[in-house]
Design a protein around this nucleic acid. Structure first.
Length: 607
RNA sequence: CGGAGUGUAGCUCAGCCUGGUAGAGCACUGCGUUCGGGACGCAGGGGUCGCAAGUUCGAAUCCUGUCACUCCGACCA
């Protein structure tokens, strides 16, 4: 049990007295000695492990793979998972949310009722029971919770209510990868709040925003809250919480000199402040044989990439059967943001045009297409804001092997529609006008949404207000990827020796490594005594009492990520000294035996 | 879904082309030496070579099928 140890921390630090919480000796004693604990470390990670956290977790014996994206949490890894879970639980409780546990298996009817069944697609794992009734393994629980609440909550007097659970979920990902960071089965904290008014939802949303900040701070992780796209789940306001790590899957645009932070999918690229320059070059057609890519053209012509306009051909097939062919214009060094493009009404929904369609509308194969000679009665031209401010630029001539130079809007090309089409890049001005943007990589570990009435309406989750009138409830939903946090923490903390975890979530806080436990009575006595003393004061300590060579013990304790190490050897004992080394310290330091408890307490209380 | 690749001991991999009694390192067991940075010696245990059918006197090896796993993948003009 990990809970008592964590909750003991405060009292243990204040009064170094005996532990006041009774715990089973067997549970407490046995697993805290490596000889009694079940853990297996590997020198080499399995070949199919891709990312560092996955390799480390497998090598350290935190997890074992059972199938693609499905893992067993071994005792050592489970300690970490439980510590994360308990911090999340404590902070949720402190914030006024109530824990419940919903079933992993859900009747499919609820998904039909919300209309999300078909939309969720093959990621939703379905099966039939023996009576041929349809069930799903829950990838999320909006339907179930809304069903629970609509049955029992009838009055505004019962609102607001915030219920959460920490439960295994299953999403049948097309390509599960990165170990527990993108598994199919994973542990998630999901909370749902119900309100009588939008204002009250906003209040709780803000409460959760603060709570999430406290959770990730307590976990000891570097993180950032960012404004997010609401995506398929729907709703209005939304923030993601990202653990910062170079290996993250998401790009976050943030402003170091202000509060601005947004997922790159959402971050606005504001229009250049400098107006378009006057045309100074004559339009001319130049041969660029074999130079289809922007970078090649720029190099071939000896012009900067920023003077090239690339044209991306897209096709939009409307529900009424009509088709729109469009060219999206971007500066050569910019990237299309498909989320932004997808929001432009004229081309919603869009897909990239096929080679055949490009030829049909432009009379030219891809590689040399451009807006200048396009028939604007058939081709919609939408320019990114940065392109709209360009003059004397280069673009494809709609003739294989040729580009145009000195192209100018107004003179050579009709003015285009203008939109924000691109991903922001480092150095772009921040949309709040308070500095310039930088890009960071992040791993999404939390997400909060204002769902509003989307599910409540579909499932008719209503209450009677003060006037006795029936109203649909306002909903918020708040998720934290508990198992993903373990992976993310290791992505953030590791070195060539292994895992480096913040003490709050490390499998053990302190390890005692005796030199010659079975050879020297003095060492054994000192190690046992220190172990008992630390244990008594509530420290989560493990004693490495395996009859292993020192190198093996050091390597293992470092690999599994224990933040503090105390080495006890005859050499030091003669001077009444132990050796202390923090996991990330360069050198060990000698500490008087009599001061070791205070030292450890100090380190742990400091975080 | 399309393309590519890989399945041999718990882990990393060799053997396959050129068919002939299944190998190495790590891990594991026993004994001995050693032991303050992943020790060494000796002796062991462990694999129906993913599965199925086929060719052959004989298949890990060749053929076919199948399953599993991994990687890549629209466009970026």
């Amino acid at each position: 049990m990990v809970t008592p140890i964590l909750s003991q921390r405060a009292s243990a630090c204040k009064e170094a007295g005996p532990c006041k919480i009774e715990v089973s000796q067997r549970i407490q004693e046995h697993p805290m000695r490596t000889s009694q604990f079940f853990f297996t470390t590997l020198k080499e990670a399995p070949a199919d492990a891709e990312v560092i956290s996955q390799k480390m977790m497998l090598r350290a014996g935190y997890i074992k793979r059972a199938a693609a994206g499905i893992y067993t949490w071994m005792p050592l890894g489970l300690r970490v998972l439980r510590k994360v879970e308990n911090i999340v639980r404590e902070e949720m409780n402190n914030a006024g949310a109530l824990e419940l546990l919903m079933p992993a298996v859900q009747p499919f009817e609820l998904w039909e009722e919300s209309g999300r069944g078909p939309a969720y697609g093959p990621e939703l794992l379905r099966f039939k029971d023996r009576h041929q009734r349809d069930f799903v393994i829950g990838p999320t629980h909006e339907e179930v919770i809304t069903d629970v609440v609509r049955r029992d909550v009838k009055s505004y007097r019962q609102l607001p209510i915030h219920l959460y659970q920490i439960q295994s979920k299953f999403r049948d990902e097309i390509r599960p990868r990165f170990g527990v960071m993108r598994g199919r089965e994973f542990l998630m904290k999901d909370g749902y709040s119900f309100h009588a008014s939008f204002d009250d939802l906003k209040r709780e949303y803000s409460n959760m925003y603060e709570t999430y900040g406290r959770i990730f701070t307590r976990l000891g992780l570097k993180f950032r809250a960012v404004a997010a796209d609401t995506g398929s789940i729907g709703g209005t306001g939304s923030h993601e919480f990202h653990v910062l790590a170079d290996s993250g899957e998401d790009d976050i645009a943030y402003c170091p000199t202000s509060d601005y932070a947004a997922n790159i999918e959402l971050a606005e690229a504001i229009a250049p402040t400098t107006p378009r320059g006057a045309a100074s070059q004559a339009l001319s057609k130049v041969a660029t044989p074999g130079k289809a890519a922007c970078a090649d053209v720029a190099e071939f012509l000896g012009v900067p990439l920023e003077k090239i306009v690339k044209s991306i051909a897209v096709m939009s097939e409307k529900e009424d059967g009509s088709k729109v062919f469009a060219l999206l214009l971007l500066r050569g060094d910019h990237e299309l943001n498909e989320i932004k493009a997808g929001k432009i009404a004229a081309i919603t929904p869009f897909r990239f045009a096929t080679e055949g369609e490009v030829e049909e509308f432009l009379g030219c194969k891809p590689g040399y297409i451009g807006p200048a000679t396009a028939d604007r009665s058939k081709v919609l031209v939408i320019a990114d804001r940065s392109v709209a401010a360009m003059s004397d630029f280069v673009c494809g001539a709609n003739e294989a092997g040729f580009h145009l130079t000195g192209v100018n809007f107004g003179r050579d090309v009709a003015e285009p529609e203008v939109a924000d089409l691109r991903n922001v890049v480092a150095g772009d001005p921040s949309p709040d006008g308070l500095g310039s943007l930088d890009i960071l990589r992040g791993i999404e570990v939390g997400h909060i949404f204002q769902l509003r009435t989307k599910y409540a309406e579909a499932l008719n989750c209503a209450f009677l207000d003060e006037q006795g009138k029936s109203q649909i409830m306002e909903m918020g939903c708040y998720g934290i990827g508990v198992s993903r946090i373990v992976g993310a923490a290791i992505e953030q903390g590791n070195d060539d020796k292994g895992i480096i975890l913040p003490p709050a979530i490390a499998p053990f806080e302190v390890c005692i490594v005796p030199m010659g436990y079975f050879k020297s009575d003095a060492v054994k006595a000192a190690a046992d005594q220190l172990y008992a003393d630390l244990k008594r004061t509530g420290v989560d300590v493990v004693l490495d009492d395996r009859n292993e060579r020192p190198g093996v013990m050091f390597a293992d304790m470092e690999l599994i990520g224990i933040p503090h190490r105390i080495v006890i050897g005859e050499r030091g004992l003669k001077e009444a000294q132990f050796e202390y080394k923090g996991r990330t310290d360069a050198e060990a330091t000698m500490v008087a035996q009599s001061e070791i408890l205070d030292l450890i307490r100090g380190k742990l209380c400091a975080g």
